[in-house]
Design a protein around this nucleic acid. Structure first.
Lengths: 189, 189
DNA sequence: CTTTTTCATTGACTTGAGTTAAGAAATAAC
DNA sequence: GTTATTTCTTAACTCAAGTCAATGAAAAAG
């Protein structure tokens, strides 16, 4: 299970066996049932997450309507805006499947940094990556029609389409489930 | 003119007069005429910018169509994605007005960091701020209709509406100029 | 296995944005 | 100040997404 974490970190840094075992000691891993809310609107996020198994999605509730902004799966870190800004969260984080998650906190991070100082340098890099992908996400949304967005999703992460109910995919694409149904029908021809 | 820079930096750090004068010495300031392209699609961004005066916008060209993603005005830093990723830019940066801009580069940043080491700590913070605002931008786009987006813009940055031609505002909102015209008419009632 | 609930599809209709084209208004150029 | 160019508005029409409602399919609960 730890391999999932090390695999993620290997993109940024080569860890020694010693360092890996320090990380293994310090990590906090928990399981959550499908439907569990990891973060609610109005709450302060005191934790950040790394998905070992399962799937999580973030959404706003706008006038009673769910507006999905992102899906997260294995090997992805989730740093809630509220975790960095220390302000109340405006969105929800919910488990879409039964999940196994590694949980981070400011204290635990500080502790680990002390023992593996090399990890500190990695912070800004991960930030940069997240900023870049966030921009891409926005830019794609601006540039493409719902239909193109769906086709993009099909090509870039076909796994998500098999794993996630269509009404949530629709919301993520910025349309209603009925419209997604029609788009799918249109594409088949 | 330097005051614009110090004013921006004061959000993150209190500089001594000495430090300020070091910055003043090292900065590179240039003027550009309206219409100048600071970055083109396919180019590698070797510079980042800080606007002292004027207005810049970023846009994609999708099948001959301009898709505006952002407007930048005084006191705003612009770090092109291409500057951090070192890959060819996918979008353009263009001066919407005559501009006075402070220009940054990796080399010059490194030099300044050497003389004012305290500035280094500021990097991740600025990154975090940018990530947060980028996320907000995306989330607003997802959550709101074009009409609401326009009203938001009216409330949050009325200055932009007076400064920027409406057909670019329309593009920024994700609609055509004709639709924005109609929205404005609808709102007036 | 059966029932219940949730999710996906379809159809008829409404609504708002896109398109095309024309003309008015505002800016820039001379 | 006049002309030329760019920008904004309006109108008629098309089209895709929203809405409402019904039905069918799939998944969860019993």
């Amino acid at each position: 299970m730890d391999e999932v974490i090390f695999d993620f970190l290997s993109k940024y840094i080569d860890l020694t066996e010693e360092e890996k075992s320090i990380l293994s000691e310090h990590k906090l891993i928990r399981s959550f049932k499908k439907g569990t809310l990891l973060l609610k609107e109005g709450e302060l996020a005191k934790e950040c997450f790394f998905i070992l198994k399962g799937c999580i999605y973030s959404y706003y509730l706008v006038e009673g309507e769910v507006k999905v902004t992102e899906f997260f799966v294995e090997k992805q870190p989730i740093t809630p805006v509220s975790y960095t800004t220390k302000k109340e969260s405006e969105y929800y984080l919910e488990c879409l499947e039964d999940c196994i998650i590694s949980i981070g906190s400011q204290e635990r991070s500080a502790e680990i940094m002390k023992k593996v100082p090399r990890l500190a340098a990695l912070g800004p890099t991960v930030l940069e990556d997240e900023l870049a992908s966030q921009r891409m996400k926005y830019d794609n949304f601006i540039k493409l029609t719902p239909e193109k967005r769906y086709q993009n999703l099909q090509n870039q992460s076909p796994d998500l389409l098999n794993r996630i109910p269509q009404y949530l995919i629709a919301s993520y694409l910025g349309i209603k489930p009925e419209s997604l149904s029609r788009i799918r029908k249109r594409i088949l021809k």
